[in-house]
């Protein structure tokens, strides 16, 4: 299993997370609770696949061995994927889907806001473009958290359950990380040390409006996407997503 340099690994973390989140949104096609949500989910998904492609293209240039964005998306195994554990979790009901989306959007929003000021011009440019989209994603998912949390008795209960299901995977969003510290010390990216508290502040604010309780800080556990230690859900997701490229390796689409 190839491990790339820290910056490339970081780019893959961003690209893979966006792609896997989008893949889960695609699974909702034709199954959303309202037509407006069919459009909304596809719209967010489209933005995310576009972002994934931008991060992959930069990563591929750095890898520089003929790899391109599609190779990265469709020809790596689960042990090489660097996406957040959160985004690979199954969709569950609309409350689980929206909770995952909201946690991810809030993380992306603060992360991209910081990366927009990166010394690396390529990162700064992709972050600036993505941030415009993610600002909209966060507004949309925050509003849904509020509607569902402070809607009916049933929707409130479903939201509490969804938070319970998903919360343990948020440790990755708030963990201090040596690799990223090294990247910021070498000047590639800005310091991300404030990301956890900013993320938590957004969660607190939206949960208060949604009459939801923020659980205690999640424990770090044995899995970590940084080392390609995923939950069992990623393998089947990739089997579906990559099937054509794997079955017809010589084909051009």
């Amino acid at each position: 299993m190839t491990k790339y340099d820290e910056l490339t690994e970081f780019l893959l973390r961003l690209g893979d997370s966006a792609l896997i989140q989008a893949q889960r949104l695609c699974e909702w096609t034709g199954r959303a609770p309202a037509l407006e949500e069919e459009m909304g989910m596809m719209n967010v998904g489209l933005d995310l696949v576009g972002q994934a492609r931008n991060w992959y293209e930069y990563a591929a240039e750095r890898i520089n061995d003929g790899t391109d964005a599609d190779t990265l998306a469709f020809r790596r195994d689960e042990r090489a994927f660097r996406n957040l554990l959160l985004v690979e979790q199954p969709n569950g009901d609309f409350a689980v889907t929206m909770t995952k989306q909201f946690f991810y959007d809030a993380w992306q929003f603060h992360l991209l806001t910081m990366l927009k000021g990166a010394n690396d011009e390529r990162i700064a440019a992709i972050a600036a473009k993505s941030l415009k989209e993610v600002t909209y994603h966060l507004r949309r998912s925050s509003q849904w958290i509020e509607r569902l949390g402070d809607g009916t008795e049933e929707s409130h209960q479903r939201m509490e359950k969804a938070v319970d299901v998903v919360w343990r995977f948020t440790f990755e969003l708030v963990e201090k990380n040596d690799a990223e510290l090294a990247l910021s010390e070498s000047g590639n990216i800005p310091s991300l040390t404030e990301l956890p508290e900013k993320w938590l502040a957004t969660v607190n604010e939206v949960f208060a409006k949604a009459t939801l309780t923020v659980p205690d800080a999640p424990n770090t556990f044995y899995l970590s996407a940084r080392t390609g230690m995923h939950s069992e859900h990623l393998g089947t997701l990739l089997a579906e997503m990559q099937f054509l490229q794997r079955a017809y390796p010589d084909a051009s689409w």
Binding site: C26, T29, G50, A73, F74
Partner: peptide, 29 residues
């Protein structure tokens, strides 16, 4: 949207996936 939704998770490249997603979004519209 359903016959296309059947393949959107299996689209073979990022470009094809984007096209199909955009199309499904248009159909909902």
């Amino acid at each position: 949207m359903l016959p296309e939704g059947n393949w959107v998770t299996r689209a073979p490249t990022l470009k094809r996936k984007l096209q199909l997603m955009a199309k499904i979004q248009d159909e909902a519209g």
